[in-house]
Amino acid sequence: METFLQVVANGLMLGGLFAIISIGLTLIFGIIKVVNFAHGEFLMAGMFLTYLITTQLGLHPYASVVVVAPALFVLGAVTQKLLIQPLLSARDEHVQIFATVGLSTAMINLALLIFGADIANTPSSGLRSSIQLGPVRILEGQLYILICAALLVVGLEFFLRRTQTGRAIRAVAQNRAAAQLMGINVNWIYVLSFGIGAACVGLASSLVAPLYPTSSTIGTYFVLTAFVVVVLGGLGSIPGAFVGAIIIGLLDSLAGFYIGSDLREAVVFGVFLVILILKPSGLFGTRLKLSHIS
């Protein structure tokens, strides 16, 4: 029983991690309807930045977020402005896919050029020490990630529902043409949204870096799970991504323990494929999002 609880606790923690890295992805897709295949590399870039700030300036990794999140916002905004915007009207969808796939390839290899194939370990600043919560032990840093993910979901939902700009973002997401007719500058909303989505990844980077060694391929490792989470939760749904992340975290942890740790990924991707094929709108996907899929 105790083991089971520990496995579940591990799953919840993993879910928090998956949530924090998936929120930006689902936000960007929900609004711009573009799948950012370079999402994992944004995370990688943020983690390297965190690594540099903590090792060079000696700051606490969490403190680096004040630089990392704005930096990623700029990276996202520039990506939208220079790469995605010119391709939005493209007749063939494949150019949008290849654009971010190309960006991803370039970023992975740029990191390889700069940092080499070695692993960069961000100082953990005590975040890897475990704490006892009732019958289970968890890492301190993981708990903070889960809490931050939950707060981020609440914060974004508040922003999108209660502020004028947030409503404008939702309007663009739901009906681009009508939003234009309301006087909303759609291109500006897109740049802003991509920036916000990327800044969420920046936040995630600073939280994740102290716990996981950074390497050029870390993004690929995480992003596939993020895609699973986002599709499961319903593309574009932020609360959906959170719930999806928790489900996948639990599934990953349980499968790793009861089936075998080397088949965890096969189970997770198996679930992904089943959902993608049977219910592409995901758990919380609305009619609107579905229309982009089938």
Partner: peptide, 19 residues
Amino acid sequence: EALGLHGFVYGVVLVLAVL
């Protein structure tokens, strides 16, 4: 020395090509 260089070139060429 140029670990990642060819991949970087591929990525950049791909981005430029789609644009």
